[in-house]
């Protein structure tokens, strides 16, 4: 098949056109720079400077109005005995560990469901996507109403059907983060759409032969679908990690970081530090510490994925 062809071709070129390789290499490299030039120019002109500036500010005291005063590593050493740094970091880490697998699984399942040919499929897809478009307040209201300890639907059903006294959800120190994870269920639209798009590009012949071999639907899903969309699973996981490290609006709207700091997310702390405490330098230090953590996690995912992610047509040896 193709891999063979390509290897043959390459072997041929290696033997016969050894001298032509370098110019070709150079041509490819030139093309590379041409193609990425929009991003490079944008980075130099617009995004790179502010990012660098935030790095510089992380070594300074900056109250927004007076010029920054450089204090070396002062901000970073300050983090070590900052109770809220540890608290918000652990709250966030707990959230990320729960929310990334939860949203991956639920959005993939939903994508598979919405990929079935049933009547009204386009309407279903649209309605399932709506919470991702509409005003955050309406969604926050929905969840605080569903999970309200006294008025809420969930607890009243628990009571009526099982005779259980439902928990406090958002007001319970132990349940507030799991509740916020659960709340992300209605925000999976974007991830779901990406999965749905990737499900469209699966080759039919593989399923055909699998079905002929008598493989069950479940088996087809794990043996064919999952490996084939693994580049997209990797993508969604990495984006999931990056974005959930920066999550805080749900807490800002519903719990204000409580009870007792148990939903005080890292970026919530950063936000307060920057815009209410006016410690922009310290906020920048917080940001860069988070950058290092997220960057390492992303690298780790990319390295681990080399074995797990399957680029079907990647014939590079």
């Amino acid at each position: 098949m193709s891999a063979v062809n390509a290897t043959e071709l390459r072997a041929e070129s290696a033997a016969k056109l050894k001298k032509r390789r370098n110019p070709e290499r150079a041509r490819e490299e030139r093309a590379f720079w041409m193609f990425i030039s929009p991003w490079v120019i944008g980075f130099i002109l617009f995004s790179g400077g502010p990012i660098l500036a935030s790095l510089v500010l992380s070594f300074a005291d900056y109250n927004v109005i007076d010029p920054p005063k450089f204090i070396g590593l002062g901000n970073f050493s300050g983090l070590f005995d900052d109770r809220l740094f540890y608290k918000s970091l652990s709250v966030t880490a707990y959230y990320v560990v729960l929310v990334v697998p939860f949203t991956m699984i639920s959005s993939l399942l939903l994508a598979v469901l919405l990929n079935q040919k049933v009547r009204g499929q386009p309407l279903f897809r649209t309605l399932y996507y709506t919470p991702s478009i509409i005003s955050g307040v309406a969604v926050a209201y929905l969840w605080s109403w569903l999970l309200n300890p006294e008025f809420g639907v969930v607890n009243s059903l628990l009571g009526q059907w099982f005779g259980i006294r439902g928990p406090g959800w958002f007001t319970d120190a132990h349940l507030v983060i799991p509740s916020m994870v659960l709340m992300q269920l209605t925000a999976i639209g974007g991830t779901m759409v990406i999965f749905l798009a990737s499900l469209q590009s699966l080759p039919s012949d593989l399923y055909e032969s699998a079905a002929m071999d008598g493989a069950s639907r479940m088996r087809q899903f794990f043996r064919i679908t999952v490996p084939l969309i693994s580049p997209v699973i990797l993508f969604n996981s990495i984006i999931g990690i990056i974005s959930s490290f920066q999550a805080f609006t749900q807490s800002y709207v519903i719990t204000k970081g409580g009870p007792d700091w148990n939903s005080y997310f890292y970026v919530y702390y950063l936000f307060d530090t920057a815009f209410f405490h006016f410690r922009m330098g310290y906020a920048s230090a917080l940001a860069w510490v988070m950058f290092v953590i997220v960057f390492l996690l992303t690298l780790l995912s990319l390295v681990l994925s080399r074995k797990l992610v399957y680029y079907e047509y990647d014939s590079r040896g």
């Binding site: 500036a53 988070m290 960057f295």
Partner: peptide, 18 residues
Amino acid sequence: AIVLGTMMIPPQVTLIPQ
């Protein structure tokens, strides 16, 4: 890696320089 990295800086701290 730099492209990915630009997503990992919370926008709150680049707001003012930008």
